[in-house]
Design a protein around this nucleic acid. Structure first.
Length: 284
DNA sequence: AATGTTCACAACCGCTCGGAT
DNA sequence: GATCCGAGCGGTTGTGAACAT
């Protein structure tokens, strides 16, 4: 059929936003609220595409956005969530209050993903080479990244992460239904994937939430999350596996949120011992 | 000091979804 | 069921700053 473009590009402003444009957008949203992005630019007096306005608001102007460096604890959480969720940046961002999907995606692409690649190479070369010093590794140049790069590297070493294949969600597979499922399933456990058994872990998830299987695989059981041999870890589930210690998602939809809240409290307390024990609890 | 390279991040683009008609 | 629309997601690109030579 071919749908009309979201907006006519003729005569529209592009590129970096000016302070004036920001003000116009902020004022309009403060007065009228978010939404109706398509018509917003015209009403707000902006020569921008609605999409662009939404993006600017969501990623930069929103009052609850936390500016500044990603802390090492946030980084740890990103790594864990990414190992669990893959490139579902919005979902990951949802667990990091004040952080946007774009920010996390950028951070991953520019810091973590690259670093893991390098770490792999370094390991392959028996750690003969030092990782290239980044722009912010220089102590004299940490205006934006005040975290200790050495500490970051240690984090990488102690947290073995599997990089899931970057995947585009297909219409019949995960999509937003999966996001909602993941949001609501309230995981009582997490995975460091320290043993590299992503598939088994996924199988465990599905074992506890069989309904998720259909959502993930579009009902195709042949493609169930599987172990290294391509077999689902346990096909003998009828409903919730009694061995799972996790209650049905409907009973506690917000378990993951609770975990995250706990995590946040630990971050605020900066209590390393508690943090370690919390992390350990996730590894069970 | 000049130039080229690398990096981080804001912004763009294409695609898909759910809902309305 | 087909089509359209608004919205959102994730990959990619553009750009300016920092760094290296």
């Amino acid at each position: 059929m071919g749908r009309a473009p979201c907006c006519s590009k003729v005569g529209l402003q592009r590129g970096p936003w000016t302070a004036t444009e920001d003000t116009l957008l902020i004022n309009y949203i403060q007065a009228h609220g978010e939404g109706h992005w398509r018509s917003l630019p015209k009403k707000a007096g902006l020569l921008r595409c609605g999409k662009s306005c939404r993006l600017r608001w969501m990623n930069y102007l929103r009052p609850d956005i936390k500016r500044g460096n990603i802390t090492s604890d946030e980084e740890e959480l990103i790594i864990r969530l990414h190992s669990l969720l893959g490139n579902r940046w919005s979902l990951i961002a949802g667990r990091l209050p004040g952080r946007t999907d774009n920010e996390i995606k950028n951070y991953w692409n520019s810091h973590l993903g690259k670093r893991f690649k390098n770490a792999g190479k370094v390991n392959q070369n028996n750690q003969k080479r030092e990782p290239k010093r980044g722009r912010y590794d220089d102590p004299k140049n940490q205006k934006n990244h005040n975290q200790d790069s050495t500490a970051n590297r240690e984090t990488v070493v102690k947290t073995k992460v599997h990089l899931p294949k970057p995947m585009r969600v297909s219409p019949l597979s995960i999509s937003r239904k999966f996001y909602y499922s993941m949001d609501s399933m309230g995981s009582g456990r997490s995975s460091s994937h320290a043993d590299g058994n992503d598939g088994i872990y996924h199988a465990e998830i599905l074992k506890c939430w069989p309904d998720l299987k259909d959502v993930i695989n579009g009902g195709e059981e042949d493609q169930l999350a599987c172990d290294k041999d391509g077999k689902f870890a346990d096909n003998n589930y009828d409903g919730l596996d009694p061995s799972c210690q996790i209650s049905e998602p409907t009973k506690d939809d917000h378990l993951l949120d609770k975990i995250f809240e706990e995590y946040q409290q630990l971050l605020e307390a900066e209590n390393q011992l508690s943090l370690d024990s919390f992390v350990d609890s996730l590894l069970i």
